[in-house]
């Protein structure tokens, strides 16, 4: 299934398959490098911790090269546009949730544990802004209701130890 109706064809290696090959080669190479110090065999001669990772990383590189060869032989379509900005708010919303739910320290900035009461609305409103037809008022009301629902279900219903609002009620 292609994303756009008919993406313009692209020259090697910027076609979909070419980029796919490049991505595989890059990933395989990074993993190979990351596993470089792992032994192939153990002291007693068994399978070492590096055997499978390095074999696989090598395999991924080879598969990537095969993909590149194919892409070179057959000019393919491009990948179309990458409208990252359209969903960036979702990513930001999720990260905001992660940073506030139990607090975090990023360099000099210390975020106190804010619990679901803050983190959930941040995630909902933050990601909701990604929709073209987003309406702020509606989103805020929705966030409040859904957060209350989540606190009820996860904390009280299922008994998960997820913080609710440590700054307000101590947990």
């Amino acid at each position: 299934m292609s994303d756009q109706a008919s993406p313009p064809s692209a020259r090697f290696p910027w076609s979909q398959d070419g980029l796919a090959g490049l991505a595989l080669v890059a990933f395989g190479a990074v993993m190979f490098w990351a596993g470089l110090e792992l032994p192939f065999v153990t002291k007693s001669g068994g399978v070492g911790s590096g055997l499978l990772p390095r074999l696989l990383a090598g395999l991924v590189v080879l598969l990537g090269i095969a993909q590149l060869v194919l892409a070179h032989r057959r000019p393919g379509e491009g990948t179309g546009s990458w409208p990252l900005a359209r969903f960036l708010p979702v990513f930001v919303g999720v990260v905001a949730f992660a940073l506030t739910i139990r607090g975090a320290a990023i360099g000099p900035l210390a975020i106190p544990p804010l619990g679901m009461a803050v983190a959930a609305p941040l995630a909902i409103i933050g990601s909701g802004l990604a929709a073209k037809e987003a309406r702020i008022g509606e989103l805020v009301v929705f966030a409040v209701l859904l957060t209350a629902f989540c606190v009820g279900v996860f904390r009280y219903g299922l008994g998960l130890s997820i913080p609710v609002a440590p700054w307000l009620i101590g947990f």
């Binding site: 979702v90 919303g93 999720v94 949730f97 992660a98 739910i101 679901m116 983190a119 959930a120 995630a123 909902i124 409103i125 990601s127 909701g128 990604a130 929709a131 989103l139 929705f142 966030a143 859904l146 957060t147 989540c150 996860f154 997820i162």
Partner: peptide
Amino acid sequence: LFPGIVVFCCI
């Protein structure tokens, strides 16, 4: 719908 899915996933 999708902000709802996002927050459930986060939790």
